[in-house]
Amino acid sequence: MSPVISVSAVTKTYRSGQIALHEIDLTVEKGEIFALLGPNGAGKTTLISIICGLVSMSSGRVLVDGHDIVQEYRAARAMIGLVPQEIALDIFATVEDTVRFSRGLFGRHAAPGHIDRLLRDLSLWEKRRARVIELSGGMKRRVMIAKALSHEPDILFLDEPTAGVDVNLRRDMWGIVRRLRDRGVTIILTTHYIEEAEEMADRVGVIDRGRLILVEETAALMRKLGKRRLSIMVQKRIEAIPPALAGWPLRLEAEGERLVYDFDANAPDTGIPRLLRDLGAAGIDYKDLETSRTSLEDIFVGLVEGRA
């Protein structure tokens, strides 16, 4: 695989003096789905905006399929489609016209067949002659996607694509994303829905306070950090973990009402039977047991809090 986007030492300091990005290095491979995770204000949108040409970087370099985004902006930008976080449309134009406009703006000659297919795929066909102002919020978002795909980009940026989106559109959107990926389109998305990144993305990057703190294959990340957790609700509150259990990596939570034990479900010995016997021997009764998987969210929160 060859990198389709390579970001080297990109920094951004806004005119206000606010540092949005500290030396970001990132490569995105051709055809992958890359998810950028991070809390609000972490720099996700700034990074995307720099690659797409909406924000000028303070220093560093970005190559899109080998084209420098500043010197060879035409070649670089022609490959990119962007669906920004906010809906921004010419509300007086018709759906069909605004989608055609986008295709032209990106230097492509009219292709009615492609536009028609796009409108059908996005369930906009019936509304193609309606003015944007007449559409619902969900339909407007579909128009934003149609515009971004109008020039058949090789790279698609989706900034918070499912924030405030209904179930149907979310399902349709992931359907489209999968189909695009099958056609070899590279997709970079930012999301707050960590389950989505987990489900959709090949790789995940975590960005926090302007620094890219982790880039990992989603599966490997889950394997490496995706431990399971046993929560033991004790019958009677305990003040401290008894010395007899000192050998176990236990944590006391919920004001002494819950013992937490993290274990590796893939290990030959999870240690659970021995732990339960030791609990009994130490005189600790329990009323409930619960196991859960540590999600990408836990990993993420752990990473971000670990840096606080």
Binding site: I80, I91, L105
Partner: peptide, 11 residues
Amino acid sequence: TRTIFELLSAP
């Protein structure tokens, strides 16, 4: 209307 993003991101 912020639609200028499209112009700024276009080749």
